[in-house]
Design a protein around this nucleic acid. Structure first.
Lengths: 191, 191
DNA sequence: GCAGACCGAATGAACATTCAATTGGGATTA
DNA sequence: TAATCCCAATTGAATGTTCATTCGGTCTGC
């Protein structure tokens, strides 16, 4: 990824933080500008419109999640370990990036995202599907559609990260491992 | 629940449908009015403001989900059956009420909901927590916080209902039972 | 002195909300 | 029964505000 011009990054980050707190409505461009320390007009030097800004921000944010997945899904590591690493890696990432998590959840449930390419062309989901495909092929996972396994697993990560991120609940290491084991028990073959 | 005046209900339903398609932003009161077949001013006869309308709509919608939970969580039925009924009942409900599901997901991830009472005072989650508490007490579920079990289970229902509701995937009865079994294998003790 | 980055006041459209006016039907009176 | 009154329900045009976007101009490095 080529380095992002400073101002552009500042606009991204400000937008993400403001959307987290105030939603898409509730974050005027003027506020993004002030928060990012740029003039309103400058935003339009980098982005065609508010919609474009939001959409590009989503891609920018998703790229970061994709990097986590790519880092943790290594074919050289046993699948089960890989699965644990992936779940933990994603959980930690979302946990440390609540802004991004909140922005994401708002985006994917908004009309912005319905106008986008379907799951099949989405790099994030393609990676996840492939990973679970591997688990099935190795005979470790139940023979359920990888789409379903991926969706269930990811939604468990998201819901836990949201729960602990909101400060409503703290999970220590032991509990996290318990949860992770629980998910694994669900999807794994044999038992 | 006392019967809702017709117009009020029409406003609720229109708002839910419009928000599903166009988001909170993107659904002006004037549009709600036209869609509901009332004048703009009429909405303000029933609701103080747009925010109030949205918030009350959420309560109205949540009440319907609560009724599903109350109907399916019966202490006289063995816990495991109850669990299967509950999961299936919620799934079917969300599946048949995509409007509501989409509205919900937008709401809970928006700033509207952060201004609301915490989980502990939320009737829906109180019911769910109590249900999972029962499962733990009966020695059927792993000894994990009921909050976590409830959150994980509910998020699995939601993600499946979203997946199939979007038309991206069809699940036949057999697959659904497979998924439900998978969730149960995760949370149930013993194995 | 050129080009691109940047500024921020100005513009115009969209929107939430208000309110003066109208309706309709149920109660009260004659 | 008819005439009258009352008031909640309803209307929709008008209001004032907020906001996305524009654009003429300034700045900076080359």
């Amino acid at each position: 990824m080529e380095p992002i011009a400073d101002k552009k990054k500042a606009i991204f980050i400000s937008t993400m933080e403001l959307v987290r707190d105030k939603g898409f409505h509730g974050t005027p461009m003027s506020m993004v500008a002030k928060h990012a320390g740029v003039a309103a007009g400058t935003i339009y030097h980098y982005f065609e419109s508010k919609e474009q800004l939001i959409t590009e921000l989503f891609d920018y944010a998703q790229q970061q999640v994709i990097e986590v997945v790519e880092q943790e899904t290594c074919a050289a590591i046993p699948f089960k370990d890989c699965f644990f690493n992936l779940w933990g890696g994603l959980y930690t990432f979302y946990q440390n990036n609540q802004n991004l998590l909140r922005f994401f959840e708002q985006f994917v449930n908004s009309p912005y995202s319905t106008a986008r390419p379907p799951l099949e062309e989405d790099k994030f989901y393609t990676l996840l599907f492939a990973f679970f495909e591997r688990g099935i092929q190795e005979g470790l996972l139940k023979e359920v559609s990888p789409k379903i396994l991926a969706t269930l697993t990811h939604s468990s990560v998201l819901s836990m990260a949201k729960l602990t991120g909101s400060g409503r609940l703290h999970l220590d290491r032991k509990e996290l491992e318990q949860i992770l084991q629980l998910i694994w028990d669900g999807i794994a073959f044999d038992r």
